[in-house]
Design a binder for these strands. Structure first.
Lengths: 99, 99
DNA sequence: AATATAGTTAGTTATTTGTATAATTATTAA
DNA sequence: TTAATAATTATACAAATAACTAACTATATT
């Protein structure tokens, strides 16, 4: 869990994830979206990769980065511990909205 | 969102939240659970309070800390952006397990 | 009033982190 | 094979962070 939170504790890295959520992208494309040097972005991508929040695959001279949704889902599960629903008293029965 | 992730980027603070999830507790009770000095825990509590992840209320000579679930829910919502479900192709219909 | 208990604030230190520039590797194009 | 493009690695440095001890404030007890 620690590696995830470490990686997520940076606005630039969270933005990168939001970008990759839509589509995979090359390192340079990602860097172009920020006013930060390319080596810095490369470093951010490395941290995300080490945390397994993204994957990287070389395509010719490009390196394509993709999001790793299952990892993000693991973090989401940690937060589920605190779901208000779980701690509420009343509603024991949930009526489905649609079938 | 930044203040949340900053506060959550520490194992001790996440453990404190897990403790407070069960019950409110005084600063000292919390400190007793860790091999860390009381001033350090006090500082962690302050960071959690500043991030609005916990609330503090003085009761006599004690300070009782409680979890702030709605704030944690906000973070959970950020993660929901990445819910696999949202990006998956297949399951459009969910069958409720029980009514 | 004096002492004990609970907690925070102040000040210090070692470590980690985000950024930059410069140099390097790898692939593609002339 | 030389030059251009994409990306990473190396190095340096300022700022942020987590920990400690010591000192302080506030409440409770004797």
């Amino acid at each position: 869990m620690d590696k995830y939170f470490k990686a997520l504790n940076d606005g630039t890295r969270r933005e990168i994830l939001e970008i990759l959520r839509i589509n995979p992208a090359a390192a340079g494309e990602i860097a172009d979206r920020f006013n930060i040097s390319k080596p810095s972005i490369s470093h951010h991508l490395d941290i995300l990769k080490q945390a397994e929040l993204v994957t990287a695959k070389k395509k010719g001279q490009f390196v394509m980065y993709s999001i790793n949704l299952p990892a993000l889902d693991e973090v989401l599960q940690w937060f589920s511990l605190f779901k208000t629903e779980m701690n509420a008293e009343k509603p024991r029965i949930r009526i489905p909205l649609r079938v």
